[in-house]
Design a protein around this nucleic acid. Structure first.
Lengths: 112, 112
DNA sequence: TCATCGCGCAACCATTGGTTGCACATAACC
DNA sequence: GGTTATGTGCAACCAATGGTTGCGCGATGA
C-alpha cells in the first residue's frame, strides 16, 4: 500500500515560507499580503504568489474590503493537511517498527 | 513560538517522488538507482539526483559493490523527519483547537 | 484635488525536477 | 582474451517555481 495523499495540499504546506505564513495567519487572525510581508523576509509580491497557491489549495480564503484583501485560514482544510502529515508519519513509523522487529528477530535467532 | 524545523530534512521529504523512493527502499530493503527507476515513472538519472538529495540530507547511505551502488534508508534520520512532521502537525492542531475554543467562547457570550 | 497606500501585472533571474545523449567501468559470455 | 551487455556518472537542455524589481491603477484620506 502506498502513501496516497493529495499532492497539491502537501506541496502547498511543503514550502517553508508558506508554513510561516500559515503560522502568522493563525496567530494573527488573518492578514493581508502587505502585513504578512512585513513579518517575513520576502517581498509583498512573493507573499501574494504564495497566497495564490494557498488559495488554490483551499487552505485560505479571501475577503476583499476596500483596497485591502484580507486572507484567513480555512480551518477544515488545514486540519485535512495535518491529517495527511500524520498519516505519512504513521506509515513510516510502522515500517520502521516492522523492520526493527525483523532485525531483532534475526539477531535473536543468530544468538540463540 | 514558530515551527522551527530542519528545512533541508523537510524539503528532502517534501518531494512526492522522494517519498515514494523512501517507501520503496523501506519495503524492498534497499535498492539502486536502476531498480528504483524501474518501479517509478521517472528516468534513472532523475532517481540518481533524488538519491543525491536524500544522501545529503542523511536519509539514506550508499554501499558501492562492484558496478552497483546500493542505497539503504538511515532509520534514525527518517525517524527524525517523522518527528518533525508530527511536530508541525501538533502545532497546527493546537492552534486550531485554541482558535476553536475562542470562537466557541465568543458564541456563548453572545448567546448568553 | 492630490498625495498616499494596497494591490495586480509583467519581465526577469536562480534553483530544481525532469529529460536525452554520451562516455566509462565493471560484469558476463563466447 | 575479446566482445557484448549493464550500471553509473556527467553535461546540456527544458519547464515550473520561488524570488526579485518596476510600473500602473483604484481606493483612502488630508
Amino acid at each position: 500500500m502506498s502513501v496516497a495523499i493529495d499532492d497539491e495540499l502537501w506541496s502547498a504546506v511543503g514550502d517553508p515560507t508558506r508554513r510561516r505564513m500559515l503560522d502568522l495567519l493563525l496567530t494573527g487572525g488573518g492578514g493581508t499580503a502587505t502585513t504578512l510581508s512585513q513579518q517575513l523576509p520576502v517581498t509583498r509580491q512573493a507573499v501574494a504568489k504564495h497566497l495564490g497557491v494557498l488559495d488554490r489549495a483551499g487552505l485560505v480564503h479571501v475577503t476583499p474590503s476596500g483596497r485591502e484583501r484580507l486572507y484567513e485560514v480555512d480551518e477544515a482544510q488545514l486540519a485535512r493537511a495535518v491529517a495527511q502529515l500524520s498519516a505519512v508519519g504513521a506509515t513510516w513509523d510502522a515500517r520502521l517498527l516492522r523492520i526493527r522487529r525483523i532485525a531483532e528477530a534475526i539477531q535473536r535467532s543468530q544468538e540463540g
